Simulated assay, not measured.
Amino acid sequence: MMRPTHAPADHPSVKPAKTGILIANLGTPDGYDYWSMRRYLNEFLSDKRVVDLSKWIWQPLLQGVILTRRPFSSGKNYKLIWNHEENESPLLTITKSQTRALAALAEEEWGDQVMVDFCMRYGNPSTKDVLERMVEAGCRRIVFLPLYPQYAGPTSATANDQLFRGLMEQTWQPAVRTVEPYVSRPDYIKALADSVRRALDGKVPKKLVASYHGMPKRYLMQGDPYHCQCQKTSRLLREELGWPEGIIDTTFQSVFGREEWLKPYTVEHVAELAKQGHTDIAVISPAFSSDCIETLEEINGEIAEAFEEAGGHHFQYIPCLNDDPAHIRVMLEVIRDNIGGWVEPRS
């Protein structure tokens, strides 16, 4: 803390200016008990970017039957994958590890000029709380990186929304740069391809299913680019692997509600593959930067079971990039592309 140059003696002290690097993930409940799950689901499912129905229609359903029943079933699923040693969800454990690794690289690059932290769109640590902490630490500029390679309104946009809401409460707002989707970055695609090669020991499968989180088809028709960017990821991944067309299938998971979502649905598609004689498949989730309930429980649970019940024999899930060094290096390069003019590398 120091008094600004030329300021009067009674001027409040100001911390030396820093540049913040803030990564954001989807979120996590604080526990798998009923009330922790209810708080988390209420925040998540009340987001207009996630469910854009009229609140007069949606909120009575949500606060009634959905939040009465769903916390029990979701809690059971979280309990199956919970990190009991740290008493936290795997998503939180992995995001912490990613942050530590990114902070180490950032320190090598920029020294104490930067501060690295993470937040969650839903649950804790909240975007608002972490933003306040960074501002109080002297961050006058912030690079904000939502951990979504492909842009979507219910992911990237709502993360940015929450950051902007937090900025509205700041007396002295920091300058902010939000990171654009990095779906086409060669280093991201190479990291994905290398993870496939390692998992499959260099073998070329007959079918690799690239399963992305789903969304209502209506969002695509309204102009959301997510579907197209998912298709692009699968194509670039196949090209990087050097595989012929037809090996990678793009599908979408986590469907709920009655309206049509992006198709094909992963759970149905893997069952159909088994019926067609593709009894040995691998599945990857390129839209997720960290393994979470949708990958560890849904893919390895519901989706794997659907495949096996339809006659499949061998189902292999390829983990997310998580804290793989190549993935952390991608994050650093994305940050470097967006921090230019704010911070100079250490000499």
Rank of each mutant, 00 (worst) to 15 (best):
E272S: 10
S156N: 09
S285D: 00
K207L: 00
L22N: 14
R140T: 13
L192C: 14
R141D: 09
D52A: 07
L262W: 09
F256L: 07
G311F: 09
P345I: 06
Q231H: 15
G153P: 00
Y148Q: 02
R238I: 00
R235F: 02
N42C: 12
G75I: 04
N338A: 10
L273H: 08
L45D: 04
D324L: 12
L45H: 01
D187A: 12
T68W: 13
S73A: 15
V283I: 14
R140C: 08
V204L: 12
L145A: 09
G340N: 10
W172V: 07
P181F: 00
H227V: 02
S347V: 13
L192Y: 10
S89K: 01
M168K: 13
L131K: 02
P216E: 09
Y317P: 05
T95C: 07
P264L: 00
S156R: 05
M168F: 06
G312T: 04
E245H: 11
F72V: 15
R336M: 11
R3Y: 05
L45P: 05
T5A: 15
Y148C: 06
Y40N: 00
E333T: 14
P71Q: 01
D10H: 13
A106N: 09
G20T: 02
R177M: 05
L241S: 11
V116R: 02
I66S: 10
